[in-house]
Simulated scan of single mutants.
Amino acid sequence: MDDSTVVMVGTLRPELVARLEREYAARELGQLAAEEAARARVAVTSGVWGVRAEHLDRLPALEAIVNFGVGYDATDVAEAARRGVVVSNTPDVLTDCVADAAVGLVIDVMRGLSAADRFVRRGEWASGRTPALARRVSGSRVGIVGLGRIGLAIARRLEGFGTTISYHNRRARTDVSYAHVRDVETLARDSDVLVLAAAGGDGSRHLVDAAVLDALGPRGFLVNVARGSVVDEDALVAALEAGRIAGAGLDVFAAEPHVPSALLGRDDVVLLPHLGSATVETRQAMADLTLANVAAYLDEGRLLTPVG
């Protein structure tokens, strides 16, 4: 096989890089001479980096983009399609771990667990102070934005807490009994915690804006395991600073790995470094599926998990 058949775009996990180098002699796009890049057929990237028009310009023979991650909004899918390039992602294999993380954020931000940990470590408990009372998770009203694979897995888990679940999708699902709400603002108004599991991209950019946050209200919490772009971060910071929402649990941000400095010192916010799928088991499964997509395309001309 030509050693420029598979190219890597952006930073990938070391284990995946090692396997791509070993099995396909793959190299990073920036390491390739123009004539080598011009021969590449498959690009492997991540949900953080993606393949955009400027990369496609350097890869005129590209046929497929294989994405490590379920989110692929960093890739210019429309431009890829225009050029006849197919795209895959790694769905299903990370659903459980992302859903687990979302539920963890719900519990943490509502019960104030991380804040209580810091309270103890600062010596405030030992000095006789009492932490503020938190909010109960069991029996709460949960609104889920995006009831796809991950959103449904979150809902199933939170059912065990006796919560009342409603959701917003573009189209109502016929296979669930949860109430479908036509707009996010109404969903927020009727929820104690609003959980975001929607796909990223232009269609969901700033779906949660100042109006939605005001609807969520001073007793409502926001949890985001979707994409940072789904939330207007400036509006979120303003709402928290003014006490217009009760708190937020965030695994994703608009300009990762940069987090708004105004959030860093707040005890009503839980901040995670985009670790929804970050378990040994899930990252192994994602790498396996990524490599299986590469192999299937090169051997059979098809992707196992195409998007769109």
Rank of each mutant, 00 (worst) to 15 (best):
A285V: 05
S177E: 15
R41W: 03
F253E: 02
V280K: 05
G308W: 00
A132C: 07
L291V: 11
R41S: 09
L20N: 11
N169V: 04
T130V: 15
A210L: 09
W125S: 03
R227V: 04
F68L: 05
I144C: 04
L216I: 13
G84I: 06
D175V: 10
A255Y: 14
M286F: 10
V66A: 06
L147N: 01
A199E: 12
I65H: 02
P257I: 14
R13G: 10
D267M: 09
A198E: 10
R122A: 15
A134I: 07
R82T: 03
L187D: 01
G123H: 11
A64C: 11
A43G: 04
A262D: 15
Y167T: 14
G123A: 12
A40G: 08
A61N: 14
G139W: 14
T279N: 06
S277C: 04
R121N: 14
A246V: 12
V208R: 02
F68W: 12
F68E: 03
V252S: 06
D267A: 14
A99Q: 06
D192C: 11
R39I: 01
T279W: 06
A211I: 00
A296N: 15
V225R: 11
H274I: 09
A25G: 14
A278M: 04
E28G: 10
V270D: 00
E15T: 12
T186Q: 13
T305I: 09
T279E: 07
E23N: 08
T290M: 06
R266P: 03
D192T: 09
A197H: 04
G276N: 09
A226L: 02
R58S: 01
R136E: 15
D209V: 09
V87I: 13
E124H: 14
V142F: 07
I65Y: 02
E54Y: 13
R302L: 04
V106R: 02
A199W: 03
G148D: 05
S140L: 07
G123K: 12
L303T: 07
L207D: 04
A101C: 13
G203Q: 09
V106N: 06
T163Y: 07
H258D: 15
V193E: 05
M8T: 11
L289K: 08
D288P: 01
L32N: 01
G69W: 01
T279G: 10
V184K: 05
H168M: 05
T164G: 07
L113Y: 12
T5F: 00
R302M: 07
D251I: 01
T95I: 01
F119G: 08
M110R: 13
H258A: 15
E281V: 08
D202P: 01
A134D: 11
M286N: 12
L196Q: 09
D209E: 06
I150W: 00
G151T: 06
T163S: 12
D100M: 13
D268N: 15
A254L: 14
V6T: 04
S204M: 02
L32S: 02
R182Y: 00
A115T: 08
F68S: 08
V195K: 01
R135A: 15
G30S: 08
G50D: 09
S138H: 14
R205S: 00
A99C: 06
H258Y: 12
H55S: 04
G217F: 03
G201N: 09
L187C: 03
A64L: 08
G128M: 10
A215T: 11
D267Y: 04
R141D: 14
D268I: 10
V181W: 06
E79V: 00
H180Y: 15
T305A: 10
